[in-house]
């Protein structure tokens, strides 16, 4: 007589190490493909810090020019 070996919990647990191994392998490939420079950290200025610089008017500009014509019917980017 044939025995029934259908044990979904055991099957699931067996698959976990395989899944971990394959996920790590694929993430390695992804990492290899990604650009190296994105791993580097650089100093970002937060919005509040930028706002402070702007509000305190720390960059007066002396150059003045006539602007080119304003766009017609373009939609403004919104926050």
């Amino acid at each position: 007589m044939q025995r029934n070996y259908n044990n979904p919990r055991r099957d699931f647990l067996k698959m976990i190490p395989i899944a971990i191994v394959s996920i790590s392998a694929f993430s390695f490939f992804n990492f290899k493909k990604s650009n190296k420079y994105s791993e580097r950290k650089f100093n970002t200025l937060s919005k509040s810090e930028a706002d402070e610089i702007i509000k305190n008017d720390k960059f007066p500009v002396s150059t003045q020019l006539k602007p080119a014509p304003a766009p017609i019917a373009q939609i403004n980017i919104k926050g």
Binding site: I54, L65, K66, G79
Partner: peptide, 16 residues
């Protein structure tokens, strides 16, 4: 400061 909701792209003064 950087406030996109009040940003204007249609400005057209004599000088900028």
């Amino acid at each position: 400061g950087i406030d996109l909701t009040h940003a204007n792209i249609h400005y057209n003064p004599e000088l900028v």
